[in-house]
């Protein structure tokens, strides 16, 4: 007497249902990384003036570190009343999510949400800040 059939059931549940889940969940879904849009009116205007599109810091830095930068900004403003940020190029910016960041990136759905939804990140920015009205070019 042995219980091989119980073990087979256990293996099927363990491997097919749990470990196999990501495989068949993704069946038929294309592997598309999100593409961000940098074509809001404010960005286009900036490009016309300066000849290039650029953020407060280089793009690679912003992609990896924007959350830390925003966190630092929040602490500087809320705790120390420091409203001026000097970037690596020596330019000064007014620290404000709604008036600086979202002035250019006024397309939350096509910008913030793209990557955040892709990676299921739920930042709590907008539990205090107002979600901006979408402005499309």
């Amino acid at each position: 007497m042995n219980n091989a059939w119980k073990i087979v059931i256990g293996v099927v549940i363990g491997f097919v249902a749990v470990f196999g889940f990501p495989f068949y969940y993704n069946l038929g879904k294309a592997n598309v990384a999100p593409k961000l849009k940098y074509d809001t009116p404010a960005i286009l205007e900036y490009e016309k003036e300066h000849g290039k599109k650029e953020c407060v810091e280089p793009k690679e830095f912003m992609a990896k570190e924007h959350m830390q930068l925003l966190n630092t900004w929040r602490d500087e403003v809320v705790r120390y009343g420091q409203r001026i940020y000097v970037n690596s190029r020596g330019e000064s910016f007014h620290i404000s999510l709604q008036n600086t960041c979202l002035n250019c990136h006024s397309n939350k759905k096509e910008f913030c949400d793209k990557c955040h939804n892709y990676l299921a990140v739920n930042p709590y920015c907008f539990s205090c800040h107002i979600v901006p009205k979408e402005k499309q070019s």
Binding site: N26, K29, N31, A33, E60, Y118
Partner: peptide, 25 residues
């Protein structure tokens, strides 16, 4: 030492959909 997570997910999803890709960076 942060890595670009979007590219990381692209790589992992490539493995899981049996169409592997190696994103840059």
């Amino acid at each position: 030492a942060k890595v670009p997570v979007v590219s990381v997910k692209e790589l992992v999803m490539g493995l899981l959909t049996f169409s592997p890709v190696i994103p840059q960076g």
